[in-house]
Amino acid sequence: MNAIAMIRDSAGAVAPRGDLARIRALRFTRPGFDPATWRQMGEMGWIGLRLPEEAGGAGLGLAEYVALAEEMGRGLVPEPLVQGVLSATLLAACGAETALAPLLAGETLPLTAWQEAPDTLAAPGTPGAARLFLPMAAGATGFLLPLREADGLALFAAEGEPETAETQDGGHFGTLRAAPGARLGSLPAGLLEAALDEAALATAAMLLGVAEGAFAMTLDYLRTRRQFGKAIGSFQALQHRAVDLKIQIALTRASVEAAAASLDAGAAAAPRTAATSRAKHRAAQAALLVTREAVQMHGAIGYTDEYDVGLYLRKALVLANLFGSPSLHRARYAACAGDEV
């Protein structure tokens, strides 16, 4: 069994397929995720999956990371794994081992507060600026502030009580206004930009998983729901709609996996941006289409909050704009690689 297959298999411990009882129980609560599950993710090496072994990580690539993120999306997992991996990347890069070790163990959750404006992947590091859209901020044990110093960025620790607002999927975003604390170290040039691209690609993989989960549930429904004495999946109109959705999922998988392969091969900044943005744009558009169609194809029951298929649509609505909206990524791709996505 290769590393990707092992990761997919191990994800079942946190995100068992077909069982969303844990997800429902955590919706609209604080902190919105299970600290014990976060520690389990640390014990399984997921938070440090991208770090080299000498830094306490697993030394795996983007191919393995997106496979894990896909399974997290399929299971609608609320634990902020992508945000934890981002923080681990920055802490390792600036040599902050004291803060890194408990994060990798799942004992802490320092969130990187980088975003200063809506719908951007730019991190200018402006001192005193409010930091926006921090997922699951109520569960953070602290925050990391990238701040501009001369021609580069440095990483600072920060503490504070974020303002929070609920999101469609039952989680929340936080807004942080906090003064920097201890200086943790300097960030290498281009490191934060590359780390944000990886976070965007992992979010694209989560959207792929969301689409797959909704589609699988819909296929089961088409096989079991009967009208006029036969399964509705035998109706040609519904078969055509299902095929169209399957094609969109296949194209999304190809785009996400191609981007991961490109980044693992050491793509330069412009090709990296193009590959990442193509994948995130396609994944967001496909997940929104698939989850909306899934709700419709379930009929009236699909529109009830008690039925699970709607949870996939809610998750897609949140993830679609996280680490850049589809329109932002289309513009980034066009700037780097042409006019088509």
Rank of each mutant, 00 (worst) to 15 (best):
R226Q: 12
L238R: 00
R253Q: 04
Q227I: 03
I249R: 04
K230M: 11
A254R: 08
H240G: 14
D244R: 11
G229M: 06
A231M: 01
G233P: 09
R223S: 09
T252Y: 07
I247V: 13
I247G: 02
A242I: 10
D244C: 02
Q248L: 05
I249G: 07
Q236V: 12
A254F: 12
L251H: 14
R241V: 12
T252P: 00
V256E: 08
L238K: 03
R253V: 05
A259L: 02
A250L: 01
A242T: 14
A258P: 00
T252I: 09
E257G: 06
L251S: 15
D244A: 10
K246L: 15
R223E: 02
L245A: 00
A259P: 02
R225H: 12
L238F: 00
F228C: 08
F235Y: 05
A254N: 06
T224R: 12
R253F: 12
T252R: 07
R223V: 06
L222V: 03
H240S: 14
A237E: 11
Q236P: 05
F228S: 02
K230Y: 06
Q227S: 10
A250V: 06
S234W: 08
F228R: 10
Q248F: 13
V256Y: 15
K246A: 15
S255G: 07
A258V: 04
T224C: 09
Q227R: 11
K246Y: 10
I232G: 00
E257I: 03
A242M: 15
L245I: 04
S255N: 07
F235W: 01
Q239H: 03
R241E: 11
L251Q: 14
R226C: 02
T224Q: 09
E257V: 14
Q239A: 05
V243C: 01
T218A: 04
R225Y: 00
S234K: 11
R241W: 06
R241S: 05
R226P: 00
Q248D: 11
T218F: 02
Q236C: 15
E257Q: 13
L222Y: 03
S255W: 10
L222E: 07
L251Y: 15
T224L: 12
L219N: 04
T224V: 13
S255Q: 10
V256N: 10
V243T: 12
I232F: 01
R226M: 05
E257D: 11
L245D: 07
H240V: 14
Y221P: 01
V256Q: 07
K246N: 12
A231T: 03
I247Y: 12
Q248Y: 15
L245T: 02
K230V: 08
A250P: 03
F228G: 13
L219W: 12
K230F: 00
G233V: 01
